[in-house]
């Protein structure tokens, strides 16, 4: 008895507390489900980091005059923007042309560099820079 589609539901926080606990107990014991979880997690991660495609200018002008499109308020889209910023360290101008761009990736890297001085368990620290 394997978890099958409960693996996706698990990643998407779509299981109730009992089902989640059961899934975790099963995962600890079942190598097959762990492997499937990893491939599903990887695909899910890639889908969620697909670049956000900008709406072509004028798309809505035929419908009526509309205010210029700003960012959508959806989580994955906002997350994608954040991830893009993390990956490439591109500064978004938020406070006019006076703003100082922060390279978030460099900040994370400097944190991890210092963290790696502590003994052992680097393997956990390095995850902070890995998944961006």
């Amino acid at each position: 008895m394997h978890l099958e589609d409960r693996l996706s539901a698990y990643l998407d926080s779509e299981l109730d507390a009992t089902q989640q606990r059961q899934a975790e107990e099963h995962l600890v014991e079942c190598a097959e489900c762990r492997t499937e979880l990893s491939s599903v997690a990887e695909v899910r991660d890639q889908l969620r980091s697909l670049p956000v495609v900008e709406v072509r200018a004028g798309t809505f002008e035929d419908v009526a005059e509309v205010v210029p499109l700003r960012r959508a308020r959806f989580r994955p889209m906002a997350a994608a923007a954040a991830v893009a910023a993390l990956v490439v360290g591109v500064g978004f101008g938020v406070a006019g042309n006076q703003s100082v761009p922060l390279q978030l990736n460099q900040v994370v890297e400097q944190h991890v560099a210092r963290a790696s001085s502590d003994p052992g368990f680097n393997v956990l620290q390095v995850q902070a820079v890995a998944n961006r």
């Binding site: 709406v55 072509r56 809505f60 509309v66 959806f74």
Partner: peptide, 30 residues
């Protein structure tokens, strides 16, 4: 107009990922 502002981009991205084509995505979003 609020729908266009708040959802226009995400509707467009939905359409783009479904069709893989910017023309179709524009038509659909409209």
């Amino acid at each position: 107009e609020q729908v266009a502002t708040d959802y226009g981009r995400v509707i467009y991205n939905f359409a783009y990922r479904l069709t893989g084509n910017r023309d179709d995505a524009s038509d659909l979003a409209q």
